[in-house]
Amino acid sequence: MADPVLPYGRQTIEDDDIAAVVQALKADFLTTGPTVEAFERAFAETVGARHAVACANGTAALHLAMLALEVQPGEAVITPSITFLATANCARYVGAEVVFADVDPLSGLMTPETLADALKRVRARRLRAVLPVHLRGDAVDLPGLGALAGEAGAVLVEDAPHALGTTMTFGGVAERVGDARHAAMATFSFHPVKTIATGEGGMVTTNEAGLAERLRALRSHGMLRPQGSEPWWYEMHEPGFNYRLPDILCALGLSQLAKLGRFATRRRALAGAYHTALAPLAPIVRIAARPSWSDPVLHLMCVLIDFEAAGVTRRRVVDGLRERGVGSQVHYIPVHRQPYYRARYGELHLPGAEAWYDRCLSLPLYPGMAESDVGKVAGALRDVLSI
């Protein structure tokens, strides 16, 4: 039997995680119970925010953020083109128009320069929010982006599913992704390939009590229970959604969150091993650039490959790696290229995003990997590229 293929990412589920879920299954509440609040409190403490609101998934987290800000039809939201579809789609869910920002071609991140260019394309629309993405786990320049957004009358909402555990240093001050010092809110995902897993799940963090209250109401049909009212009484002043995260999944999230330090240490060690193992493949292969302020817990090991110089297509590299037991993925196809957005906004030339997409490839990275697996990946890549 052939050796299994190393996936680009996967969950790490251990016996105590299973025991936590079993205990939740035996408890009185499978959903809307005390484990949800326990997970929220622990998460808020972990990232350093005052409030955390759990929800069904990372896309729901983004949608709730737009609803909580009361973004209106016809208003504008800026997102980078290098991201998952949900970052842009959440603006369309509330009728807002998307303005795509370019990215740095070596890091894939929105920068103050690319945001400034996108601001010129907002035109007469009212700009409500800027959604920078902490791609791979590396943090964007939050103070720089926040200053530009503030001057334009907008707020930041950090799209942070890749960056749980990432720390930053701005002006000599240590910060954590999700602490919402520079943003109205930060959103997270607990999809199985992310740093911690709940199966599906999401979280929104904020330091504003009013936003937290709106997020909690909107995730549960818009229901409010006025203080001092009858125990059965509820009121709906605006429609919300069923975006709740069940206690069963929050039990898994609590168990996983307790391991974040270990997972972070392992991911950083594997990233260091990749830096060593891939160094001989330069300049054909280079690891995505890391900003000086960012100390990431990488969700993705993205490399940039000069396929033209190597004389091989990306498809041939992907297939050749799989033949050698190594999985890979592409993060991401520029969202402005998607048929829906091309039909809505026309052709858009974003050279940084195009250059990133033309060269990017994500290699296996997850805590269950052995360091020998990093050597296997590097060796397979060297063979496929004939370096």
Rank of each mutant, 00 (worst) to 15 (best):
E213Y: 13
E200P: 03
A149G: 07
R219P: 01
V193M: 13
H237S: 10
H162Y: 14
R216K: 15
R225C: 11
M236R: 13
G150T: 08
D159G: 10
A258L: 01
V204N: 00
D159V: 13
D141I: 09
G228Q: 01
T167A: 11
T187C: 15
S229D: 12
G253F: 02
A197E: 13
L142H: 13
Y243R: 04
W233T: 12
L164K: 00
R216C: 12
H237K: 09
M203Q: 05
V204F: 11
P143S: 11
P192G: 12
E151L: 14
G201P: 06
M185D: 02
S189E: 08
A217Q: 07
P143I: 11
V140K: 01
P132A: 10
G165N: 08
E200A: 13
G222M: 02
E175Y: 09
V130C: 02
H221C: 06
T195F: 13
V173M: 05
T195E: 03
R219H: 03
G199K: 04
D159H: 15
L249A: 11
L245D: 01
V133E: 05
N242A: 08
G228R: 02
H191D: 15
E235G: 10
L131N: 02
A160M: 05
T206C: 06
V177P: 04
L145N: 01
G171E: 11
E230T: 10
Y243A: 09
L252V: 03
E238Y: 08
L164D: 06
W233G: 07
G199T: 08
D138A: 14
G199F: 07
V155T: 12
Y234E: 09
T187A: 15
L131F: 14
P192L: 13
S220V: 09
A154L: 14
M203N: 02
G199A: 07
A251G: 03
A209R: 09
G222A: 06
T169R: 15
A183C: 01
G165K: 03
A186Q: 00
L135D: 03
A152D: 08
A258W: 03
G165T: 11
T206P: 04
G137L: 00
V155Q: 00
Y243P: 04
P239S: 09
S220C: 09
L254H: 00
A147Y: 06
A217E: 07
P246A: 05
P132C: 10
N242W: 08
A217V: 06
G172H: 04
A217R: 14
P143T: 03
N242T: 06
F190W: 04
R136A: 13
F241R: 07
V133S: 10
M203L: 10
E230F: 09
L156A: 01
H162C: 12
A209I: 07
G171P: 07
P161V: 07
L254G: 05
T169G: 11
V177I: 15
A212M: 00
A184Q: 02
D247A: 10
V204T: 04
N207S: 08
F170S: 08
L249H: 10
A147I: 05
F190S: 10
L164Y: 05
Y234N: 07
L218E: 05
A174K: 08
V177F: 06
N242K: 01
